[in-house]
Design a protein around this nucleic acid. Structure first.
Length: 587
DNA sequence: GCCGTTTTCGGCCCGACTGTTTTCAGTCG
Protein backbone atom coordinates (compact mmCIF):
# COMPACT_ATOMS: atom_id res chain seq x y z
CA UNK A 1 0.00 0.00 0.00
CA UNK A 2 1.54 3.32 -1.01
CA UNK A 3 1.39 6.60 0.90
CA UNK A 4 -1.37 7.99 -1.25
CA UNK A 5 -3.74 5.10 -0.49
CA UNK A 6 -2.81 5.16 3.20
CA UNK A 7 -3.58 8.89 3.36
CA UNK A 8 -6.81 8.16 1.58
CA UNK A 9 -7.74 5.50 4.14
CA UNK A 10 -6.98 7.81 7.10
CA UNK A 11 -9.12 10.52 5.54
CA UNK A 12 -11.94 8.04 5.16
CA UNK A 13 -11.68 7.18 8.85
CA UNK A 14 -11.87 10.89 9.65
CA UNK A 15 -14.99 11.18 7.51
CA UNK A 16 -16.53 8.18 9.26
CA UNK A 17 -15.91 9.75 12.66
CA UNK A 18 -17.44 13.03 11.47
CA UNK A 19 -20.57 11.21 10.42
CA UNK A 20 -20.82 9.13 13.58
CA UNK A 21 -20.35 11.91 16.12
CA UNK A 22 -18.41 14.98 15.17
CA UNK A 23 -18.42 16.46 18.67
CA UNK A 24 -17.29 13.33 20.43
CA UNK A 25 -14.54 12.53 17.93
CA UNK A 26 -13.56 16.12 17.22
CA UNK A 27 -9.91 15.70 18.04
CA UNK A 28 -9.55 12.23 16.57
CA UNK A 29 -10.85 13.68 13.32
CA UNK A 30 -8.25 16.42 13.41
CA UNK A 31 -5.53 13.90 14.25
CA UNK A 32 -6.49 11.59 11.37
CA UNK A 33 -6.69 14.47 8.91
CA UNK A 34 -3.34 15.76 9.99
CA UNK A 35 -1.70 12.34 9.76
CA UNK A 36 -3.24 11.80 6.31
CA UNK A 37 -1.87 15.13 5.20
CA UNK A 38 1.61 14.47 6.55
CA UNK A 39 1.73 11.01 4.98
CA UNK A 40 0.58 12.21 1.58
CA UNK A 41 3.48 14.68 1.61
CA UNK A 42 6.01 12.28 3.14
CA UNK A 43 8.78 11.35 0.71
CA UNK A 44 9.62 8.15 2.57
CA UNK A 45 7.14 5.35 1.98
CA UNK A 46 5.28 4.28 5.12
CA UNK A 47 5.84 0.64 4.15
CA UNK A 48 9.61 1.26 4.19
CA UNK A 49 9.47 3.13 7.50
CA UNK A 50 7.61 0.17 8.92
CA UNK A 51 10.36 -2.23 7.83
CA UNK A 52 13.01 0.06 9.29
CA UNK A 53 11.01 0.43 12.50
CA UNK A 54 10.81 4.20 12.05
CA UNK A 55 7.06 4.83 11.96
CA UNK A 56 7.42 6.98 15.07
CA UNK A 57 9.49 9.49 13.07
CA UNK A 58 6.40 10.65 11.16
CA UNK A 59 5.09 13.84 12.75
CA UNK A 60 1.46 13.46 13.80
CA UNK A 61 1.75 9.70 14.17
CA UNK A 62 1.62 8.73 17.83
CA UNK A 63 1.41 5.43 19.63
CA UNK A 64 -2.07 4.59 18.47
CA UNK A 65 -1.68 5.41 14.78
CA UNK A 66 1.67 3.68 14.79
CA UNK A 67 0.01 0.47 15.94
CA UNK A 68 -2.64 0.76 13.24
CA UNK A 69 -0.06 1.43 10.53
CA UNK A 70 1.93 -1.59 11.66
CA UNK A 71 -1.16 -3.73 11.38
CA UNK A 72 -1.83 -2.28 7.96
CA UNK A 73 1.70 -3.01 6.70
CA UNK A 74 1.67 -6.48 8.17
CA UNK A 75 -1.80 -7.67 7.16
CA UNK A 76 -3.06 -5.20 4.56
CA UNK A 77 -5.97 -4.06 6.72
CA UNK A 78 -6.79 -2.52 10.10
CA UNK A 79 -9.50 -4.19 12.15
CA UNK A 80 -10.59 -1.01 13.89
CA UNK A 81 -10.88 0.96 10.66
CA UNK A 82 -12.94 -1.75 9.06
CA UNK A 83 -15.29 -1.65 12.01
CA UNK A 84 -15.58 2.13 11.87
CA UNK A 85 -16.08 2.19 8.09
CA UNK A 86 -18.56 -0.69 8.07
CA UNK A 87 -21.56 1.61 8.53
CA UNK A 88 -20.49 4.15 5.93
CA UNK A 89 -21.59 3.33 2.36
CA UNK A 90 -18.83 3.66 -0.23
CA UNK A 91 -21.10 5.97 -2.24
CA UNK A 92 -20.48 8.70 0.38
CA UNK A 93 -16.90 9.32 -0.71
CA UNK A 94 -17.27 10.46 -4.33
CA UNK A 95 -19.78 13.08 -3.15
CA UNK A 96 -17.15 14.66 -0.91
CA UNK A 97 -15.33 15.92 -3.99
CA UNK A 98 -18.23 18.26 -4.67
CA UNK A 99 -17.93 21.75 -3.22
CA UNK A 100 -20.41 22.49 -0.38
CA UNK A 101 -20.90 18.79 0.30
CA UNK A 102 -19.20 17.47 3.40
CA UNK A 103 -19.49 14.23 5.36
CA UNK A 104 -22.85 14.98 6.98
CA UNK A 105 -24.59 16.08 3.83
CA UNK A 106 -23.16 13.22 1.78
CA UNK A 107 -24.27 10.66 4.35
CA UNK A 108 -27.77 12.13 4.61
CA UNK A 109 -28.23 11.99 0.85
CA UNK A 110 -26.77 8.53 0.37
CA UNK A 111 -28.91 7.14 3.21
CA UNK A 112 -32.13 8.86 2.20
CA UNK A 113 -31.99 7.60 -1.38
CA UNK A 114 -30.25 4.30 -0.62
CA UNK A 115 -27.40 5.04 -3.01
CA UNK A 116 -25.02 2.08 -3.10
CA UNK A 117 -22.81 2.32 -6.16
CA UNK A 118 -19.87 4.74 -5.81
CA UNK A 119 -19.26 4.63 -9.57
CA UNK A 120 -22.74 5.95 -10.44
CA UNK A 121 -23.62 7.97 -7.34
CA UNK A 122 -23.08 11.35 -8.99
CA UNK A 123 -25.29 10.50 -11.92
CA UNK A 124 -27.93 8.94 -9.65
CA UNK A 125 -28.02 11.94 -7.35
CA UNK A 126 -28.28 14.33 -10.28
CA UNK A 127 -31.42 12.55 -11.48
CA UNK A 128 -32.92 12.61 -7.99
CA UNK A 129 -32.17 16.33 -7.64
CA UNK A 130 -33.67 17.09 -11.04
CA UNK A 131 -36.80 15.21 -10.03
CA UNK A 132 -37.12 17.67 -7.14
CA UNK A 133 -36.83 15.06 -4.41
CA UNK A 134 -33.98 16.65 -2.46
CA UNK A 135 -35.81 19.90 -1.71
CA UNK A 136 -38.46 17.91 0.17
CA UNK A 137 -35.98 16.54 2.68
CA UNK A 138 -35.64 18.13 6.11
CA UNK A 139 -32.69 20.49 6.25
CA UNK A 140 -32.66 20.92 2.48
CA UNK A 141 -34.52 23.35 0.26
CA UNK A 142 -34.84 24.60 -3.29
CA UNK A 143 -31.55 26.43 -3.11
CA UNK A 144 -29.48 23.54 -1.84
CA UNK A 145 -31.10 21.30 -4.43
CA UNK A 146 -30.21 23.55 -7.33
CA UNK A 147 -26.75 24.00 -5.83
CA UNK A 148 -26.31 20.22 -5.95
CA UNK A 149 -27.43 20.10 -9.57
CA UNK A 150 -25.06 22.92 -10.42
CA UNK A 151 -22.04 21.41 -8.68
CA UNK A 152 -22.50 17.93 -10.17
CA UNK A 153 -22.86 19.36 -13.67
CA UNK A 154 -19.93 21.63 -13.02
CA UNK A 155 -17.87 18.72 -11.68
CA UNK A 156 -18.42 16.87 -14.95
CA UNK A 157 -17.20 19.92 -16.83
CA UNK A 158 -14.22 20.59 -14.64
CA UNK A 159 -13.22 16.96 -14.35
CA UNK A 160 -11.31 17.06 -17.60
CA UNK A 161 -9.16 19.83 -16.20
CA UNK A 162 -8.88 18.12 -12.82
CA UNK A 163 -5.14 17.68 -13.14
CA UNK A 164 -3.29 20.31 -11.24
CA UNK A 165 -1.46 22.98 -13.21
CA UNK A 166 2.31 23.03 -13.14
CA UNK A 167 3.80 26.01 -11.31
CA UNK A 168 5.09 27.68 -14.50
CA UNK A 169 1.70 27.35 -16.16
CA UNK A 170 -0.20 28.76 -13.17
CA UNK A 171 2.38 31.43 -12.68
CA UNK A 172 2.11 32.69 -16.25
CA UNK A 173 -1.66 32.57 -16.07
CA UNK A 174 -1.57 34.68 -12.90
CA UNK A 175 0.91 37.14 -14.41
CA UNK A 176 -1.44 37.72 -17.30
CA UNK A 177 -4.35 38.33 -14.96
CA UNK A 178 -2.34 40.60 -12.67
CA UNK A 179 -1.24 42.68 -15.64
CA UNK A 180 -4.91 43.11 -16.54
CA UNK A 181 -5.89 43.95 -12.94
CA UNK A 182 -3.24 46.67 -12.69
CA UNK A 183 -5.16 48.61 -15.32
CA UNK A 184 -7.78 49.28 -12.67
CA UNK A 185 -6.75 52.47 -10.86
CA UNK A 186 -8.20 51.28 -7.57
CA UNK A 187 -5.73 48.37 -7.33
CA UNK A 188 -3.17 49.60 -4.80
CA UNK A 189 -1.27 46.36 -4.27
CA UNK A 190 -1.74 42.94 -5.83
CA UNK A 191 -0.25 39.56 -4.93
CA UNK A 192 -0.90 35.89 -5.53
CA UNK A 193 -2.07 33.85 -2.55
CA UNK A 194 -2.18 30.20 -1.50
CA UNK A 195 -0.16 27.47 -3.16
CA UNK A 196 0.90 29.75 -5.99
CA UNK A 197 2.46 32.25 -3.60
CA UNK A 198 4.10 29.37 -1.74
CA UNK A 199 5.45 28.25 -5.12
CA UNK A 200 4.15 24.71 -4.88
CA UNK A 201 5.17 22.57 -7.85
CA UNK A 202 1.54 22.06 -8.82
CA UNK A 203 -1.41 24.43 -8.35
CA UNK A 204 -5.17 23.83 -8.17
CA UNK A 205 -6.83 27.27 -8.28
CA UNK A 206 -5.38 30.74 -8.77
CA UNK A 207 -5.94 33.01 -5.76
CA UNK A 208 -5.26 36.74 -5.93
CA UNK A 209 -5.22 39.42 -3.21
CA UNK A 210 -5.83 43.09 -3.88
CA UNK A 211 -5.40 46.02 -1.51
CA UNK A 212 -7.95 48.72 -2.30
CA UNK A 213 -10.27 51.39 -0.91
CA UNK A 214 -12.85 50.57 -3.54
CA UNK A 215 -13.65 46.87 -3.65
CA UNK A 216 -16.64 47.35 -5.94
CA UNK A 217 -14.55 48.95 -8.65
CA UNK A 218 -11.87 46.24 -8.39
CA UNK A 219 -14.38 43.38 -8.50
CA UNK A 220 -16.25 44.92 -11.42
CA UNK A 221 -13.01 45.14 -13.33
CA UNK A 222 -12.16 41.54 -12.40
CA UNK A 223 -15.42 39.98 -13.58
CA UNK A 224 -14.92 41.66 -16.94
CA UNK A 225 -11.65 39.83 -17.51
CA UNK A 226 -11.52 39.11 -21.25
CA UNK A 227 -10.35 35.50 -20.73
CA UNK A 228 -13.33 34.63 -18.53
CA UNK A 229 -15.65 31.81 -19.50
CA UNK A 230 -18.15 32.53 -16.75
CA UNK A 231 -18.79 34.11 -13.38
CA UNK A 232 -18.93 31.71 -10.44
CA UNK A 233 -19.50 34.02 -7.45
CA UNK A 234 -19.45 37.70 -6.66
CA UNK A 235 -19.89 39.26 -3.23
CA UNK A 236 -18.94 42.57 -1.64
CA UNK A 237 -15.31 41.75 -1.01
CA UNK A 238 -14.49 38.73 -3.17
CA UNK A 239 -15.36 37.12 -6.48
CA UNK A 240 -14.60 33.98 -8.49
CA UNK A 241 -14.54 33.29 -12.19
CA UNK A 242 -13.84 30.32 -14.39
CA UNK A 243 -11.15 31.33 -16.87
CA UNK A 244 -11.50 30.36 -20.52
CA UNK A 245 -9.02 27.50 -19.96
CA UNK A 246 -11.37 26.02 -17.33
CA UNK A 247 -9.32 27.09 -14.31
CA UNK A 248 -10.89 28.77 -11.32
CA UNK A 249 -9.63 32.19 -10.24
CA UNK A 250 -10.57 33.73 -6.87
CA UNK A 251 -9.90 37.31 -5.94
CA UNK A 252 -10.08 38.78 -2.45
CA UNK A 253 -9.97 42.44 -1.57
CA UNK A 254 -8.96 44.18 1.64
CA UNK A 255 -8.10 47.67 2.79
CA UNK A 256 -4.41 48.53 2.72
CA UNK A 257 -4.66 48.98 6.50
CA UNK A 258 -4.99 45.26 7.20
CA UNK A 259 -3.63 43.87 3.94
CA UNK A 260 -0.71 42.16 5.71
CA UNK A 261 -3.02 40.10 7.90
CA UNK A 262 -5.10 38.99 4.95
CA UNK A 263 -2.06 38.13 2.85
CA UNK A 264 -0.69 36.01 5.66
CA UNK A 265 -4.00 34.31 6.32
CA UNK A 266 -4.70 33.22 2.75
CA UNK A 267 -1.14 32.27 1.91
CA UNK A 268 -1.22 29.41 4.41
CA UNK A 269 -0.55 26.63 4.34
CA UNK A 270 -3.14 25.40 6.78
CA UNK A 271 -0.70 23.72 9.18
CA UNK A 272 1.53 26.79 9.23
CA UNK A 273 -1.44 28.99 10.14
CA UNK A 274 -2.75 26.61 12.79
CA UNK A 275 0.68 26.53 14.40
CA UNK A 276 0.86 30.35 14.39
CA UNK A 277 -2.55 30.62 16.03
CA UNK A 278 -1.53 28.20 18.74
CA UNK A 279 1.48 30.40 19.46
CA UNK A 280 -0.77 33.48 19.43
CA UNK A 281 -3.11 31.94 22.02
CA UNK A 282 -0.25 31.37 24.43
CA UNK A 283 0.57 35.06 24.14
CA UNK A 284 -3.04 36.08 24.83
CA UNK A 285 -3.72 36.88 21.20
CA UNK A 286 -6.12 35.59 18.62
CA UNK A 287 -5.07 35.62 14.98
CA UNK A 288 -7.34 36.07 11.99
CA UNK A 289 -7.35 37.57 8.50
CA UNK A 290 -8.37 40.88 10.05
CA UNK A 291 -5.40 41.13 12.34
CA UNK A 292 -4.63 40.19 15.93
CA UNK A 293 -7.24 40.41 18.68
CA UNK A 294 -5.75 40.98 22.12
CA UNK A 295 -7.69 39.12 24.79
CA UNK A 296 -7.03 41.69 27.54
CA UNK A 297 -8.54 44.61 25.60
CA UNK A 298 -10.72 42.72 23.12
CA UNK A 299 -9.43 45.07 20.44
CA UNK A 300 -8.22 44.02 16.99
CA UNK A 301 -4.96 45.48 15.75
CA UNK A 302 -4.55 45.68 11.99
CA UNK A 303 -1.32 45.06 10.09
CA UNK A 304 -0.31 46.65 6.82
CA UNK A 305 2.48 44.21 6.16
CA UNK A 306 3.14 40.57 6.95
CA UNK A 307 6.44 41.54 8.50
CA UNK A 308 4.73 43.56 11.25
CA UNK A 309 2.34 40.70 11.89
CA UNK A 310 5.08 38.10 12.29
CA UNK A 311 6.97 40.54 14.50
CA UNK A 312 3.94 40.93 16.73
CA UNK A 313 4.02 37.17 17.20
CA UNK A 314 7.65 37.41 18.26
CA UNK A 315 9.25 36.09 15.14
CA UNK A 316 10.95 36.90 11.89
CA UNK A 317 9.05 37.23 8.62
CA UNK A 318 8.96 33.86 6.87
CA UNK A 319 9.29 33.62 3.09
CA UNK A 320 6.03 32.16 1.68
CA UNK A 321 7.88 29.23 0.09
CA UNK A 322 8.87 27.98 3.54
CA UNK A 323 5.40 28.11 5.11
CA UNK A 324 4.68 24.40 5.48
CA UNK A 325 5.04 23.98 9.24
CA UNK A 326 8.20 22.00 8.64
CA UNK A 327 10.27 23.72 11.31
CA UNK A 328 10.33 27.18 9.77
CA UNK A 329 8.32 28.71 12.63
CA UNK A 330 10.85 27.54 15.18
CA UNK A 331 13.65 29.02 13.05
CA UNK A 332 11.79 32.32 12.77
CA UNK A 333 11.41 32.46 16.55
CA UNK A 334 15.19 32.13 16.83
CA UNK A 335 15.58 34.68 14.04
CA UNK A 336 17.46 32.06 12.07
CA UNK A 337 15.57 31.95 8.77
CA UNK A 338 18.18 31.30 6.06
CA UNK A 339 18.71 33.86 3.33
CA UNK A 340 17.19 31.88 0.47
CA UNK A 341 18.74 31.81 -2.99
CA UNK A 342 17.42 34.35 -5.51
CA UNK A 343 17.36 34.43 -9.30
CA UNK A 344 20.01 37.13 -9.35
CA UNK A 345 22.44 34.78 -7.58
CA UNK A 346 22.51 32.44 -10.59
CA UNK A 347 25.69 32.84 -12.64
CA UNK A 348 25.19 30.20 -15.31
CA UNK A 349 23.85 26.72 -15.88
CA UNK A 350 24.93 23.27 -16.96
CA UNK A 351 22.06 21.54 -18.70
CA UNK A 352 21.59 23.00 -22.19
CA UNK A 353 20.75 21.03 -25.33
CA UNK A 354 21.93 22.71 -28.53
CA UNK A 355 21.03 21.71 -32.09
CA UNK A 356 24.58 20.48 -32.74
CA UNK A 357 24.04 16.98 -34.03
CA UNK A 358 26.17 14.38 -32.29
CA UNK A 359 23.59 11.77 -33.30
CA UNK A 360 22.27 11.48 -29.77
CA UNK A 361 20.29 8.78 -28.00
CA UNK A 362 17.47 11.23 -27.25
CA UNK A 363 16.16 14.54 -28.53
CA UNK A 364 18.34 17.36 -29.85
CA UNK A 365 17.79 21.01 -29.08
CA UNK A 366 16.55 23.39 -31.76
CA UNK A 367 18.96 26.34 -31.41
CA UNK A 368 22.69 26.56 -32.11
CA UNK A 369 25.52 27.34 -29.70
CA UNK A 370 25.76 31.03 -30.47
CA UNK A 371 22.03 31.65 -30.04
CA UNK A 372 22.08 30.04 -26.62
CA UNK A 373 25.27 31.83 -25.64
CA UNK A 374 23.80 35.17 -26.60
CA UNK A 375 20.80 34.40 -24.46
CA UNK A 376 23.14 33.51 -21.60
CA UNK A 377 24.79 36.89 -22.01
CA UNK A 378 21.36 38.56 -21.87
CA UNK A 379 20.68 36.73 -18.63
CA UNK A 380 23.96 38.05 -17.30
CA UNK A 381 25.45 34.55 -17.00
CA UNK A 382 29.18 34.09 -16.74
CA UNK A 383 29.21 30.56 -18.16
CA UNK A 384 27.05 28.00 -19.92
CA UNK A 385 27.42 24.23 -19.97
CA UNK A 386 26.34 22.33 -23.08
CA UNK A 387 24.92 18.92 -22.22
CA UNK A 388 23.60 17.26 -25.34
CA UNK A 389 22.55 13.66 -24.91
CA UNK A 390 25.37 11.20 -25.55
CA UNK A 391 25.67 9.80 -29.10
CA UNK A 392 23.44 6.77 -29.37
CA UNK A 393 25.20 3.64 -28.29
CA UNK A 394 23.38 1.25 -30.60
CA UNK A 395 24.33 3.14 -33.74
CA UNK A 396 27.96 3.97 -32.99
CA UNK A 397 31.22 2.33 -32.03
CA UNK A 398 33.10 3.88 -29.13
CA UNK A 399 35.55 5.29 -31.65
CA UNK A 400 32.66 7.05 -33.50
CA UNK A 401 31.43 8.45 -30.23
CA UNK A 402 34.85 9.77 -29.35
CA UNK A 403 35.10 11.52 -32.73
CA UNK A 404 31.62 13.03 -32.46
CA UNK A 405 32.30 14.53 -29.06
CA UNK A 406 35.69 15.78 -30.14
CA UNK A 407 34.11 17.45 -33.15
CA UNK A 408 31.51 19.10 -30.95
CA UNK A 409 34.16 20.42 -28.61
CA UNK A 410 36.08 21.92 -31.53
CA UNK A 411 32.97 23.74 -32.70
CA UNK A 412 32.24 24.89 -29.20
CA UNK A 413 35.77 26.22 -28.73
CA UNK A 414 35.37 28.21 -31.95
CA UNK A 415 31.97 29.51 -30.98
CA UNK A 416 31.33 33.11 -30.07
CA UNK A 417 31.89 32.56 -26.36
CA UNK A 418 35.16 34.46 -26.16
CA UNK A 419 33.82 37.49 -27.92
CA UNK A 420 30.75 37.87 -25.73
CA UNK A 421 32.35 36.93 -22.43
CA UNK A 422 30.37 33.83 -21.52
CA UNK A 423 32.61 30.85 -20.73
CA UNK A 424 31.69 27.48 -22.16
CA UNK A 425 31.73 24.16 -20.33
CA UNK A 426 32.11 20.95 -22.33
CA UNK A 427 29.56 18.71 -20.69
CA UNK A 428 27.27 15.90 -21.80
CA UNK A 429 24.09 14.33 -20.50
CA UNK A 430 25.09 10.69 -20.30
CA UNK A 431 22.62 7.86 -19.81
CA UNK A 432 23.06 5.54 -16.87
CA UNK A 433 22.42 2.17 -18.51
CA UNK A 434 20.35 -0.49 -16.79
CA UNK A 435 23.43 -2.16 -15.28
CA UNK A 436 24.73 1.16 -13.93
CA UNK A 437 27.47 1.63 -16.52
CA UNK A 438 27.58 4.97 -18.31
CA UNK A 439 26.63 4.95 -22.00
CA UNK A 440 30.06 6.13 -23.16
CA UNK A 441 33.53 4.93 -22.19
CA UNK A 442 36.19 6.67 -20.13
CA UNK A 443 38.17 7.73 -23.17
CA UNK A 444 35.22 9.74 -24.50
CA UNK A 445 34.40 11.01 -21.04
CA UNK A 446 37.95 12.32 -20.72
CA UNK A 447 37.08 14.91 -23.38
CA UNK A 448 34.61 16.54 -21.03
CA UNK A 449 34.89 19.01 -18.18
CA UNK A 450 32.32 16.81 -16.45
CA UNK A 451 29.19 14.83 -17.20
CA UNK A 452 25.61 15.12 -16.12
CA UNK A 453 24.22 11.61 -15.68
CA UNK A 454 20.61 10.53 -15.75
CA UNK A 455 18.11 7.71 -16.16
CA UNK A 456 16.20 7.53 -19.44
CA UNK A 457 15.18 3.88 -19.62
CA UNK A 458 13.84 1.00 -17.51
CA UNK A 459 12.02 3.18 -14.96
CA UNK A 460 10.20 0.27 -13.37
CA UNK A 461 13.12 -1.37 -11.59
CA UNK A 462 12.77 -2.38 -7.98
CA UNK A 463 14.06 0.06 -5.43
CA UNK A 464 17.31 -1.65 -4.55
CA UNK A 465 18.35 -2.31 -8.15
CA UNK A 466 17.56 1.28 -9.12
CA UNK A 467 19.47 2.66 -6.14
CA UNK A 468 22.54 0.61 -7.01
CA UNK A 469 22.23 1.57 -10.67
CA UNK A 470 22.23 5.28 -9.83
CA UNK A 471 25.12 4.99 -7.40
CA UNK A 472 27.18 2.97 -9.85
CA UNK A 473 26.51 5.57 -12.54
CA UNK A 474 27.60 8.35 -10.21
CA UNK A 475 30.74 6.48 -9.23
CA UNK A 476 32.51 7.41 -12.46
CA UNK A 477 34.88 10.30 -11.60
CA UNK A 478 33.55 12.36 -14.51
CA UNK A 479 29.94 12.01 -13.34
CA UNK A 480 29.32 15.11 -11.22
CA UNK A 481 25.61 15.90 -11.46
CA UNK A 482 22.58 13.62 -11.22
CA UNK A 483 19.99 15.20 -13.53
CA UNK A 484 16.24 15.18 -12.82
CA UNK A 485 16.91 12.72 -9.99
CA UNK A 486 13.47 11.17 -9.46
CA UNK A 487 12.46 10.97 -13.13
CA UNK A 488 8.90 12.03 -12.39
CA UNK A 489 6.85 13.83 -15.03
CA UNK A 490 4.09 15.92 -13.47
CA UNK A 491 0.58 14.56 -14.21
CA UNK A 492 2.07 11.79 -16.29
CA UNK A 493 4.64 9.55 -14.66
CA UNK A 494 5.57 8.98 -11.01
CA UNK A 495 9.24 9.02 -10.11
CA UNK A 496 11.10 5.76 -9.91
CA UNK A 497 11.62 3.96 -6.64
CA UNK A 498 14.97 4.63 -5.01
CA UNK A 499 16.53 4.76 -1.56
CA UNK A 500 17.14 8.49 -1.36
CA UNK A 501 18.90 8.41 1.98
CA UNK A 502 21.44 6.03 0.51
CA UNK A 503 21.90 8.11 -2.64
CA UNK A 504 22.19 11.35 -0.66
CA UNK A 505 24.79 9.82 1.62
CA UNK A 506 26.76 8.63 -1.40
CA UNK A 507 26.62 12.07 -2.99
CA UNK A 508 27.77 13.70 0.21
CA UNK A 509 30.75 11.38 0.59
CA UNK A 510 31.77 11.58 -3.06
CA UNK A 511 31.23 15.23 -3.95
CA UNK A 512 28.34 14.74 -6.38
CA UNK A 513 25.61 17.32 -6.94
CA UNK A 514 21.89 16.85 -7.41
CA UNK A 515 20.13 18.77 -10.11
CA UNK A 516 16.99 20.79 -9.56
CA UNK A 517 15.53 20.61 -13.04
CA UNK A 518 13.36 23.66 -13.82
CA UNK A 519 11.63 22.18 -16.84
CA UNK A 520 7.88 22.84 -16.23
CA UNK A 521 6.70 19.23 -16.20
CA UNK A 522 9.72 18.03 -14.24
CA UNK A 523 10.54 20.41 -11.36
CA UNK A 524 12.74 17.59 -10.15
CA UNK A 525 14.38 17.14 -7.61
CA UNK A 526 11.11 17.90 -5.83
CA UNK A 527 11.20 20.38 -2.98
CA UNK A 528 10.55 18.06 -0.07
CA UNK A 529 13.42 15.87 -1.22
CA UNK A 530 15.57 18.97 -1.63
CA UNK A 531 14.91 19.81 2.02
CA UNK A 532 15.87 16.30 2.98
CA UNK A 533 19.01 16.33 0.84
CA UNK A 534 19.92 19.67 2.40
CA UNK A 535 20.26 17.91 5.74
CA UNK A 536 23.16 15.98 4.19
CA UNK A 537 24.75 19.32 3.28
CA UNK A 538 24.73 18.35 -0.38
CA UNK A 539 25.48 20.61 -3.32
CA UNK A 540 22.84 21.29 -5.96
CA UNK A 541 22.67 22.67 -9.47
CA UNK A 542 19.63 24.45 -10.87
CA UNK A 543 19.18 23.83 -14.59
CA UNK A 544 16.51 24.51 -17.18
CA UNK A 545 17.26 21.47 -19.39
CA UNK A 546 16.54 23.84 -22.27
CA UNK A 547 15.96 22.36 -25.70
CA UNK A 548 15.08 25.77 -27.09
CA UNK A 549 16.49 29.20 -26.31
CA UNK A 550 13.32 30.62 -24.77
CA UNK A 551 13.26 27.84 -22.22
CA UNK A 552 16.31 29.39 -20.59
CA UNK A 553 13.84 31.87 -19.08
CA UNK A 554 12.45 29.07 -16.89
CA UNK A 555 15.32 29.32 -14.37
CA UNK A 556 13.04 31.15 -11.91
CA UNK A 557 10.97 28.00 -11.37
CA UNK A 558 14.05 26.00 -10.44
CA UNK A 559 14.98 28.76 -8.01
CA UNK A 560 11.44 28.51 -6.60
CA UNK A 561 11.92 24.81 -5.90
CA UNK A 562 15.32 25.50 -4.34
CA UNK A 563 13.83 28.15 -2.07
CA UNK A 564 11.06 25.78 -1.12
CA UNK A 565 13.82 23.34 -0.17
CA UNK A 566 15.39 26.06 2.05
CA UNK A 567 18.53 26.44 -0.08
CA UNK A 568 20.84 29.43 0.06
CA UNK A 569 23.25 30.43 -2.68
CA UNK A 570 26.03 28.65 -0.81
CA UNK A 571 24.32 25.32 -1.50
CA UNK A 572 24.24 25.84 -5.25
CA UNK A 573 27.07 25.21 -7.71
CA UNK A 574 25.81 27.61 -10.33
CA UNK A 575 26.01 30.47 -7.87
CA UNK A 576 29.80 30.02 -7.97
CA UNK A 577 32.20 31.91 -10.22
CA UNK A 578 33.57 30.08 -13.27
CA UNK A 579 36.94 29.27 -11.69
CA UNK A 580 35.28 27.75 -8.64
CA UNK A 581 32.94 25.69 -10.81
CA UNK A 582 35.94 24.24 -12.69
CA UNK A 583 37.69 23.58 -9.39
CA UNK A 584 34.61 21.77 -8.06
CA UNK A 585 34.28 19.71 -11.24
CA UNK A 586 37.85 18.54 -11.09
CA UNK A 587 37.74 17.58 -7.41
C1' DG B 1 -5.53 10.67 18.78
C1' DC B 2 -1.43 13.89 19.50
C1' DC B 3 1.70 16.34 22.32
C1' DG B 4 5.00 18.98 25.92
C1' DT B 5 10.59 26.06 27.38
C1' DT B 6 3.53 26.51 31.51
C1' DT B 7 1.91 20.28 30.68
C1' DT B 8 2.63 12.89 30.83
C1' DC B 9 -3.03 15.48 31.74
C1' DG B 10 -5.71 18.52 29.71
C1' DG B 11 -5.61 21.02 26.36
C1' DC B 12 -6.24 21.10 21.08
C1' DC B 13 -7.35 27.68 15.40
C1' DC B 14 -10.46 31.19 13.30
C1' DG B 15 -13.98 33.61 10.83
C1' DA B 16 -16.97 33.91 6.71
C1' DC B 17 -20.55 32.25 4.26
C1' DT B 18 -24.79 29.80 3.19
C1' DG B 19 -29.12 27.87 3.73
C1' DT B 20 -32.55 26.64 6.55
C1' DT B 21 -33.60 28.27 10.33
C1' DT B 22 -35.54 31.91 14.33
C1' DT B 23 -30.38 30.39 16.91
C1' DC B 24 -27.69 26.99 14.27
C1' DA B 25 -25.32 23.26 11.46
C1' DG B 26 -22.33 22.38 7.89
C1' DT B 27 -18.65 23.61 4.86
C1' DC B 28 -14.64 26.07 3.44
C1' DG B 29 -10.05 28.10 3.25
Amino acid sequence: MNNKSIANLLNKVAVAYSIKDEKKFRFQILAYQKAADVISNEVREVSDLYKENKLNTIPGVGASLQKHLEELCKTGHVYQYETVLKDIPEAVFPLLDLPTIGPKTAFKLVSAFKLKDPTTVLKDLLEIAKAGRIAQMEGFGEKSQSEIIKTIEQANLIDKAAERMTLPFASQMADQLIEYMRKCKDVKEIYTLGSLRRRMETIGDIDIAVATDNATSVLDHFVNYPYKSRLLDKGDVSASILASNGRRVDIKTQSAQSFGAMLQHFTGNKEHNVHLREIAIKKGMSLSEKGIKFSNTGKIKEYKTEKELYQALGMQWIPPEMREDAGEIELAQKHAIPHLVELKDIKGEFHIHSSFNIEPSHDLGINDFSTMLKKAKELNYKYLGFSEHNPSVSKHTSEDIYKLIKMRNTYLDNSCSNTIGVRVLNLLETDILTDGRLAIDDKSLSLLDASIVSIHSSFQMDKETMTNRIIKGLSNPKAKILAHPTGRIINSRPGYQADWDKIFRYCQQNNKALEINAYPTRLDLISNLVRKAREYKLKFTIDTDSHAVDQMNLMQYGVDVARKGWLTRNDIINCLDYQDVIKWMSK
